[in-house]
């Protein structure tokens, strides 16, 4: 348990520090889909069109990502437990 708390604290400190530093940088942090793929596509006269199922509306995309993250986390955790069962000495 102590190891978990230490690891959580370490992750929180590193993530907070990195996020604070990244947020202060004068960059837009656009994805390479915008800065490379769509840039060349537009130059060639083939701009990207909106997705057929457009979830990029307000908080809908955030909701979809949350569901996807939760589903992915659940599936990976479930399978992980099956493949790597706790050792006899481990606490449940």
């Amino acid at each position: 348990m102590r190891n978990i708390i230490l690891a959580v604290a370490l992750v929180v400190v590193i993530t907070a520090g990195a996020t604070f530093w990244l947020a202060r940088q004068p960059c837009s942090w656009s994805g390479v889909d915008e800065t490379v793929v769509e840039k060349y596509a537009e130059a060639a006269g083939r701009p990207a069109r909106k997705p057929y199922i457009n979830t990029d509306q307000g908080d809908l995309l955030l909701f979809c990502f949350l569901i996807a993250g939760a589903a992915g986390g659940f599936v990976s955790g479930y399978c992980f437990r099956e493949l790597f069962p706790p050792k006899k000495g481990d606490n449940p």
Partner: peptide, 24 residues
């Protein structure tokens, strides 16, 4: 497990997949 934790976080779509409609 903590290295895998960020995998379960929501985020916006910014990546390399070729977007809809770009390929003829």
């Amino acid at each position: 497990i903590f290295l895998l934790m960020p995998l379960a976080l929501p985020s916006t779509a910014q990546a390399m997949h070729i977007s809809e409609g770009i390929l003829p």
